[in-house]
Amino acid sequence: MPTSPTNTTLLLWASIPDEVLRWAEWDDQYVVYHEDSGDAHQLNQVAALSLQHLTGQGQVSGDLVRTVAQLLVVDVDDALTATVEQALANLRRIGLVVSIRL
């Protein structure tokens, strides 16, 4: 299995086209269905917001962390940064986002 690159700050992240994604949301818990792979995935709020925000636009992870912080009305800190980066790595592993080296 591949390992994720250690320095994600140099990567541009983007979601796959959203017409192949279907969403369900219950009490801040999300399920996203990916039509191409036929898989459903349960996502926490950070992962879901990241994926939704990356739809149709690329972003470097630093900017994404700030966006997520605004959406959740929390401060940017190391813990949030780590959570977002973990979420991105997971989303890439299941094929919902791609990363491009800048």
Binding site: A24, W26, D27, Q29, V31, A40, Q42
Partner: peptide
């Protein structure tokens, strides 16, 4: 939680990937 329940139902489906 409903999201978790949804996923567990999917795990018990025979043809979730077929019905799309």
């Amino acid at each position: 939680g409903k999201a978790g329940a949804f996923m567990r139902v999917v795990q018990n489906a025979f043809n979730f990937n077929v019905v799309g």
